[in-house]
């Protein structure tokens, strides 16, 4: 039926509109790269970290920056875009058309995910070129862990858009959720060097498990299945919650 072409038209239009949001694009796409560039220029970050098998701090932070941009896009930028549409009545307006508002949500998730992927590629490239950070030794494992992490973070974002009534509360909730996500992703203290007890807890959170899986893939091992399963389970559960509770108005 024409629904597929209609959905494509929505995604195309949303892509154009997304390109007009320069502020959001900066934070999602350029900020992680800027972060790595700044951190990489700190001399002590080039020293190997004990207990990581010779990785330097900057090497660990490449994965951290990747997860950070992913989290930012998924729990702050994407929900904000959906709240704006909901409050303006855009979703309501689209409910009266054959394509339905789901197309807009899909478009927003796809576009933010695409921006994240672009940001990640940029971080890996800049890290490699400027600071000689390693590229993933297990590309397949990395892509798999990466894809799961992407789905998990966006599922968290989807739950926020579903459960939070308006953008004012949404911004607050996004921020509140964002920092634990960053912590579990290892932004302040890389997961790989966390004390054992803390690490055991963190690796069952979506971002903690994703962070471990990405680090393992960086180091050349195929990620521990346990971590991949944790991320996948989170993604499924959160996604279901979001779909069941989403409100159009």
């Amino acid at each position: 039926m024409a629904t597929a072409t209609a959905t494509a038209a929505v995604v195309r239009t949303e892509a154009r509109l997304f390109g007009r949001e320069l502020g959001a694009l900066f934070w999602t796409v350029l900020f992680p790269t800027a972060l790595v560039a700044v951190l990489g220029s700190i001399p002590s970050f080039s020293d190997p970290v004990a207990g990581t098998g010779g990785l330097r701090t900057i090497d660990l932070y490449v994965s951290v920056a990747v997860l950070m941009s992913m989290s930012m896009a998924a729990v702050m930028a994407m929900p904000a875009a959906v709240f704006a549409y909901r409050e303006a009545g855009v979703l309501r307006r689209l409910r009266t058309t054959p394509v339905g508002p789901g197309a807009v949500l899909l478009a927003q998730a796809l576009l933010h995910a695409a921006a994240v992927i672009g940001a990640s590629a940029l971080v890996l490239t800049i890290g490699r070129v400027a600071y000689d950070t390693p590229l993933p030794e297990s590309p397949v494992g990395y892509l798999m862990a990466y894809a799961l992490a992407l789905v998990a973070t966006f599922s968290v974002g989807a739950v926020i858009t579903s459960l939070v009534p308006n953008s004012r509360i949404g911004t607050a909730v996004g921020t509140i959720v964002f920092f634990p996500m960053l912590f579990t992703a290892g932004v302040w203290l890389p997961v790989q060097v966390m004390p054992d007890v803390l690490r055991e807890i963190v690796v069952v959170t979506p971002l903690g498990a994703a962070s471990e899986a990405l680090a393992e893939a960086m180091a050349g091992d195929f990620p521990d299945l346990r971590h991949l399963v944790v991320v996948a389970v989170w993604a499924v559960v959160l996604w279901l919650v979001s779909v069941r509770t989403f409100r159009w108005e």
Binding site: A2, T5, A6, A9, V10, T13, E14, R16, L17, R20, E21, A84, Y85, A88, G89, V90, R92, R93, T96, T97, P98, V99, G100
Partner: peptide, 29 residues
């Protein structure tokens, strides 16, 4: 939705969509 068109109160479009883009988008639906 295929046979009923509606003009609603209190519903707006995407802030940065142009008139042309809106018309083209709705045409594609």
């Amino acid at each position: 939705t295929r046979i009923l068109g509606i003009q609603l109160q209190e519903s707006r479009l995407q802030a940065k969509i142009t008139v042309r883009e809106a018309l083209e988008l709705w045409t594609a639906l």
